[in-house]
Amino acid sequence: MGVIHVEGVSKIYNPDKIPVTALQGVSLTIEAGEFTAIVGPSGSGKTTLLNVIGGLDRPTSGRVAVGGHEITGLSDNELIDFRKEHIGFVFQAYNLIPVLTARENVSFVMLLQNRPAAEREARTQELLAAVGLEDQIDKRPAELSGGQQQRVAVARALAPKPAFILADEPTANLDSHSASNLLDIMARLNEEEGVTFLFSTHDQRVIDRARRVITLVDGAIARDEYRS
């Protein structure tokens, strides 16, 4: 069994009014250490699939298991705790907490996990160094560039030692240099530390780096290709 196992997942919004089918019968398995991109035109269901895998949205039918644990039947609080312990998120708009410094943003998730202060501090330093921001740790998001903010977001996503990272259009707001830099960091973390990345993206630069590309069309998997 892989890190993520999706089986026959469908998602229909407004089932009682004007139904909109976002996903239909999607099944896939993501293995540990994958660097996978989910691609497809706008409205094809990429973000919905990521949300369902991440436990942010519940499927209308089908099941999702992460690390062997089925998450589709979990309560709201159980899902929140599950996300906190097992999933790292990187969003298109960085979504750092604006009043916290880079160090505090990274440390925040570990605080939610009630990790000891010394452990939080050590891991924060380690992660910010890994994304090349060891000299920016006390800056707030507004004092950082878009690329730097997204690198802090990656460090934050890695902080709880998640089973995998879900990245929704992580390079969409970045210039070429920043995007390339970010992808280098993610690729290195994937290769050297075995971190599993699952992207939803339109960005060709991300697609070019991915070792597996899943193409969604109208909520269904149209193609699933592995690259060497």
């Binding site: 929140i80 705790d81 996300r83 998120f89 969003f91 934050r156």
Partner: peptide, 16 residues
């Protein structure tokens, strides 16, 4: 609202 959504997404319980 957006920020609250993110915080809940990354694992912050609603009451907290």
């Amino acid at each position: 609202e957006y920020e609250f959504g993110v915080l809940i997404a990354i694992g912050m319980r609603r009451w907290r």
